[in-house]
């Protein structure tokens, strides 16, 4: 902040004799210091906040429970079982020919979340042979996370021969696709593969 420097940089109209030492120069340097200090402080605060935020994400032990194996040999045609995968129920249904036929007869344009039945059971194969009677999906309503009814013969199946969510009345068809009610999406299909014609590994 030397006076000679100030005088040099002063334009003809911005310099007044009655004002001591123009602030322009010092102000600019001070602004720079304030801004860099704030930037460094901000980055520092954010980097300290990140571990706190991240600690709330699933921990390693939660992530470790990633796959489940199920033996399907005892599940007869027209029966369903529910297994647990990552803390969520997975519906496995051995569908009847009628159910498959119904699911495939629907025009895609009539669906809220268009998806063909073939697409939904494409992971159900073993040794190149399609096992499309096996429908495997996460049994969690895509509306607000309730578990739809319809796994047992005595439970309501809705108007589409599938599942019915008791919370807000969403109805899923025999392919687990949303047909009626507030849910926006079809029941989710987990990653799975048949390790045998009657054994399945989810996850």
């Amino acid at each position: 902040m030397t006076s000679s420097a100030d005088h040099e940089c002063c334009g003809s109209h911005s310099c007044h004799a009655d004002k001591p030492e123009t602030h322009d120069d010092g102000q600019g340097r001070r602004d720079f210091l304030v801004m860099t200090a704030c930037a460094v402080g901000g980055v520092g605060a954010a980097s300290v906040a990140w571990p706190l935020v991240s600690s709330m994400n699933p921990a390693a032990d939660v992530l470790a429970l990633a796959s489940t194996e199920v033996d399907l040999s005892k599940v007869k045609e027209g029966e369903s079982i529910t297994v647990v995968w990552r803390g969520k129920p997975v519906f496995i249904r051995h569908r009847t020919a009628k159910e498959i036929e119904e699911a495939r007869a629907v025009a895609l344009a009539d669906l809220k979340d268009p998806q063909s039945d073939e697409e939904r059971v494409k992971q159900s194969t073993f040794g190149g042979k399609p096992l499309s009677e096996w429908l495997v999906m996460i049994g969690v309503c895509t509306h607000l996370g309730c578990i739809p009814l319809g796994q047992k013969p005595t439970e309501p199946h809705g108007e589409f021969d599938g599942w019915f969510c008791p919370c807000h009345g969403s109805q899923y068809d025999s392919s687990g696709r949303i047909r009626k009610g507030p849910a926006p999406k079809n029941l989710e299909i987990p990653p799975y593969q048949f390790t045998d014609a009657s054994k399945i590994k989810i996850g």
Partner: peptide
Amino acid sequence: VTWLIGGFAVDNPTLNR
């Protein structure tokens, strides 16, 4: 949602927080 509940379903981490 996964971040809020600390897992893939409401569970022990959710109850704790």
